[in-house]
Write a protein that binds this DNA or RNA. Structure first.
Lengths: 338, 338
DNA sequence: ACGTGCCAATGAAACGATTCAAAAGCACGT
DNA sequence: ACGTGCTTTTGAATCGTTTCATTGGCACGT
């Protein structure tokens, strides 16, 4: 089933069928109708491989994420798809699952498919890989990671600013003893959030920051930390707690509310990071810091299209500030008058 | 950059390069080495479009899901990818986002790409679409949905059995007054779960089932329902509550624990459905009913490959039983002896 | 020296869509 | 009748890979 069959059925040349599909204006209405009829009758579907072979380029963008199950990536993917669709391209998604082997496999597959370009949220050091891709003229944009050597464009988030915003918010609510809950493990992101917290505390007279280490970035680990904090003497209780992610914060909340009947936010204000779906539905809705996922997804695609259209243009590192999401865990609800 | 360039560089014919790539045994070691060297020096990457055009078929499977953000689908996708990889194929993922238009776009794109076959978790009625695909010889397997006309294979879950298991579990713990929390809205799945619950209650002497309607399938709606139930007189309290999904159950739990200090599971045993990530980390770990996602993903790919290899073989509707996940919300923890 | 097998290497043909120079068709004026 | 300028249609060439019938080279037996 090819364009040839359609041409025969409609009694025209193959070039005419191609024109109906790609430049309808060049074909007379009568012929167009006959060809269209033949296409419908035969159920003809274009062969993308042949198309692409001739064109030398596809209309596809490859997106490789660390984990499709992670809401950050799934919503980024959604935004990228929308933006690509508006520009006549399609996004195909590959899930590396934090595995360098799978990442490599997807890069290979996408390169063989001659995608227009790739958006990669890299597992480890992709320096050499990216170098090789670029040498062959394949546009690449890094997501949620900057390229130290500035060889390719990237979109990422300023976690230092996020940490700063979170603690600034606690300080603005009058809290002075602040606890940061995180892990030691070398996550750059956790370290950045802590750095931002330090900066905010440093700028505020009389404010002190205490760093508490959790076993992991999970609800359970948060509950342990929360239990420890809740049992302190009242004068040693912090007025505000900033957790390096929402899971930790939810664990802390569970412990603080249940173990000693402390109130959130009256006794302790609590803020997390990431704004996962569940945060809004916690017993006390959890304040958090959110990455601008949609904006990041769209921007990544735009940077990529820019590079595709203008390969010589300068690479750009776009760094977004996160957004503060204020909910009940840091603010007493406004009481309705009446 | 093509196979021709490699051939020139290595001083051989194009056919030889192709043989090195596809049938290495046919080529002498010396030649193979020279060709391999040329490939590495030039950084040659196969052109999949040309390959596929010649072969007439790709090594790609298209997977269209309702929502990549939904853990059920992301973990199903992961399993499908793994299973496909073991069989030398690659899965590309399309997210319809419950939108029929997007679904159609992905079906079209995949068909143009001449994927080996598609796994579809359909938005609405795909009957006509699937019919057309099959007429053109495109293998399709439905996911999480059975084809009433049995025209294509499918993998799905028996939600009636799931509802039955959940309520059977509550009854086994000695509870007799059971409440089912769900929505009226025409979700077939909710109706199935209720049917299973009815069946289990019907088989148990002295058991009664009450159906309570929630506004939506959310934590907030669950909290409303839970609040209403918790305020009942003690003799009207149910001994067990079965919620149509985990979000509802978590809302119910929040309300029941906080509003009147009732204990879970001592006063009320609670079970949800879906086993979302968060259920294990709830204040009282939530019992739930889980779909065998991994098995479903693998089976879907296997059914598809079966149809690809043996187009005349019979279509099969595989229906899995869900799994009961027992946690603290239905069972008092066993106390350590000592 | 010469046929006989074998293995290795060759290169033209094919896949299906697009492109584009060339041809055909048409209307109109002279 | 014929040229002019226009639109419409044609079909060969092209993209990069794989396939496979054919050729080339070599060792061995006679």
């Amino acid at each position: 089933m090819s364009i040839k069959d359609v041409a025969d059925r409609a009694g025209v040349a193959v070039g005419t069928v191609s024109n109906v599909l790609n430049h309808p204006a060049r074909v007379s209405a009568a012929t167009r109708g006959r060809v269209q009829g033949a296409i419908d009758e035969l159920g003809f579907v274009r062969n993308d491989a042949a198309r692409q072979l001739r064109a030398g380029q596809s209309r596809t963008i490859g997106l490789i994420v660390l984990d499709v199950g992670n809401p950050f990536f799934s919503s980024l993917a959604r935004a990228a798809e929308d933006c690509a669709a508006e520009n006549g391209s399609t996004v195909v998604l590959g899930d590396s699952g934090q595995d360098a082997g799978r990442e490599t496999r997807y890069i290979d597959v996408f390169e063989q498919q001659r995608v227009q370009g790739m958006l990669i949220s890299p597992v480890g050091d992709v320096g050499p890989r990216v170098e090789a891709l670029r040498a062959r003229g394949m546009p690449v944009v890094l997501v949620d990671r900057v390229d130290a050597q500035r060889r390719c464009s990237s979109v990422s988030v300023d976690d230092v600013a996020g940490g700063y915003m979170a603690v600034r918010h606690l300080l603005a609510a009058g809290r002075r003893r602040i606890v940061f809950v995180g892990t030691r493990a070398g996550y750059r992101q956790v370290a950045d959030r802590l750095a931002g917290a330090r900066q905010a505390v440093g700028e505020q007279d009389g404010a002190v920051l205490e760093v508490v280490e959790a076993e992991a970035m999970t609800v359970l680990a948060g509950r342990d930390v929360g239990g420890e904090i809740a049992q302190r003497r009242r004068e040693e209780l912090p007025g505000g707690i900033f957790c390096a992610n929402d899971l930790l914060a939810i664990g802390v909340m569970q412990a603080v509310l249940l173990i000693r009947g402390l109130r959130i936010p009256e006794d302790i204000a609590l803020i997390g990071y990431d704004d996962i779906d569940f945060s809004a539905s916690a017993v006390v809705p959890l304040s958090s810091v959110r990455k601008p996922t949609t904006l990041m997804g769209r921007t990544a695609v735009e940077l990529l299209l820019e590079e595709i259209e203008e390969p010589a243009s300068r690479r750009r590192q776009v760094i977004f500030d996160p957004e503060l999401v204020e909910r009940g865990s840091t603010q007493a609800p406004v009481r309705a008058v009446g």
